[in-house]
């Protein structure tokens, strides 16, 4: 089970004076159960890339395979693909439209043509997964707080029980606590249900904390691909394309330059504390 992109290119405004590559010759494989952090500055092609994974955008060149099947084949069902590859857009709460929370979450499974009972069960389960209590089921989505609305919108995708969940900047505009809650829930989904997660983010700290594999994009290409601890020591390359490594990377790097033999591949806070303590004179 996997998603494979084979030399995918996407061109905006093809045939006009504004013609430009949004994606250029991208080949990569996303394996089952991975937690991928996709980073890059605005306009680097992140959002365009993820929209290819569930067929919302079609590549001008190259092909996308889902579980070995060419999704551009004539008899391939895009509808099925979109159930399996769930995509949560930026500010997903802006797409809520039903009168109650539960009705909105049922919308996706209902479109799948599932029996009523199954639809209900999936909706309840999805809401539980994102931490929306039973007392809010019949509330209007517009009465909720911003963070709650966002979680209801994510539940709307989860209720379709996708095998792959893509989230395009799911924490944008939330306060620190709201950000943490959403990310923790995503991490739990990954761990407990083994869903493949693709997290599009601007925050190096977030992807460093949660992702097992990072894809760094610039100008429509994937320029770095690897585990966070392998990528962040190359922080100079990351800076060149307008991004920054996590603050911890900078601390470790500076300490090493100052002569402290710390491990510069560490991005995790606890590990950093432990690593630094080894080389300092402690009070107790």
């Amino acid at each position: 089970m996997s998603i494979v992109l084979d030399k995918v290119s996407h061109i905006y405004d093809l045939g006009t004076a504004n013609e430009r590559f949004a994606l250029k010759d991208i080949s990569l494989q996303i394996k089952d159960g991975e937690f991928i952090g996709l980073i890059g500055h605005t306009g680097s092609g992140k959002s365009t890339l993820v929209q290819h994974l569930n067929g919302l955008l079609k590549a001008n060149y190259g092909t996308v395979y889902y579980n070995g099947e060419d999704i551009y084949a004539k008899d391939y069902s895009m509808k099925k693909l979109r159930q399996k590859v769930g995509l949560v857009f930026q500010y997903p709460e802006h797409q809520l439209f039903e009168t109650t929370v539960i009705k909105d979450v049922k919308f996706g499974p209902k479109n799948m043509g599932l029996p009523q009972l199954e639809v209900d069960m999936r909706a309840f389960e999805a809401l539980k997964q994102v931490g929306i209590g039973d007392d809010l089921l019949d509330a209007s989505p517009f009465e909720l707080s911003g963070g709650q609305r966002r979680r209801v919108a994510i539940a709307g995708i989860l209720a379709m029980q996708p095998e792959v969940l893509i989230l395009d900047e799911p924490t944008a505009g939330l306060d620190p606590k709201g950000r943490e809650e959403i990310l923790e829930q995503i991490a739990r989904l990954h761990k407990e249900r083994n869903i493949t997660i693709i997290l599009v983010s601007h925050s190096m700290e977030d992807v460093a904390k949660y992702a097992q594999r990072l894809l760094v994009m610039n100008r429509g290409r994937v320029v770095l691909d690897g585990a966070p601890q392998d990528i962040f020591p190359h922080y100079e390359e990351i800076e060149k394309i307008g991004l920054a490594a996590p603050q911890i990377t900078y601390v470790m790097q500076s300490l090493k330059e100052a002569g402290l033999p710390v491990d510069t591949s560490i991005t995790d806070l606890e590990q950093a504390v432990e690593n630094i303590c080894r080389y300092t004179k402690n009070v107790n």
Binding site: P176, V273, C277, T280
Partner: peptide, 21 residues
């Protein structure tokens, strides 16, 4: 108050707790 501090501040805080002055 549902707020977090910058990551370096947090790192410094944890180091202090561990006894790094």
């Amino acid at each position: 108050y549902r707020l977090t501090v910058p990551e370096v501040t947090l790192l410094a805080h944890k180091l202090r707790q561990k006894g790094v002055p």
